[in-house]
Design a protein around this nucleic acid. Structure first.
Lengths: 149, 149
DNA sequence: AAATTTTTTGGTGCAATACCAAATTTATCT
DNA sequence: AGATAAATTTGGTATTGCACCAAAAAATTT
């Protein structure tokens, strides 16, 4: 399942911190535990629990209390967009004199406020690059957009 | 006076909304009144008063109660950076298939989270363009940075 | 099964942003 | 000038995002 089946989002649905949670959960893969998220994001476990509950209520995650979370279909599709957005923006900045690390950390600060529309335009303007500075870039959604331009 | 005399800032000092206030005040020029800001930013005048007080406390504005505000030297230098940042980022996005209007409104959403270092790098990588999509771009600061590379 | 670890709950706090009502100051108009 | 109107500020309240702590609850380990 990929994001092309959920065309109804702007990319601005989630706060910066929630974006971090989802990206980590997808990159980790499978069921992820509260403690692990807390230690990676460096927040109190109670903060993690609360955020996971919010993401679950909004339909991005399945949360089994005391057991862990995993992405819903929608959540996975959405998070694929989040990761593509991060990589496209990071790649873009490296074309303007920023190192990979600089680009990556710069983008972390503002990516949550860049719309899906903008990313799709940037992405096709760049020719749907396959490799970013922090990993491979999947284009299922933006290629799809292109097809019936 | 320009920002080169205030090298001690990262560009991340102000919240998105405060950036809006300062940019408007500089673009308007001279002494600006609460009501005018309120109607342009579409907020209650009491909200404007409070924000102006915070910006004045932080040294960006002189606020004469019931009379209006104007930029301090530091505030003007800083706001010149804010406007350059906005224009550089907007121009950048127009190189990736966004229209001027799309670029401008997209940038408004995230510009407050883009660092001065990144802007200076992007700016010199672009060859210090003189014209953005929303006006002329002044380069006193980033040219200065260049001089003693 | 008892002890330990993990997770959740409930409470609190702060920053950013906004509104409303009431009070104050300034401006305008007889 | 005095009354009225307009602009501004003050004080109070609310929401969202994000964080922490202490205590309770559940799961795991020994």
């Amino acid at each position: 399942m990929n994001e092309k089946n959920y065309p109804e989002f702007t990319g601005l649905e989630l706060s910066p911190r929630k974006v971090d949670y989802l990206k980590f959960i997808l990159e980790k893969g499978g069921t992820v535990k509260t403690t692990e998220i807390s230690s990676v994001l460096k927040v109190d476990p109670s903060t993690t629990t609360k955020t996971l509950n919010e993401l679950a209520s909004a339909g991005y995650l399945n949360h089994v209390p005391y057991r862990g979370v995993d992405l819903t279909e929608m959540g996975e599709a959405y998070t694929q967009f989040l990761i593509r957005r991060h990589r496209i923006l990071s790649l873009l900045l490296t074309h303007y004199g920023l190192s990979s690390e600089e680009a990556c950390s710069e983008v972390l600060r503002f990516e949550a406020f860049v719309s899906r529309d903008a990313i799709n335009k940037i992405c096709s303007s760049m020719g749907h690059p396959m490799f970013g500075v922090c990993g491979e870039i999947s284009h299922e959604n933006c290629l799809h957009e292109e097809k019936h331009h």
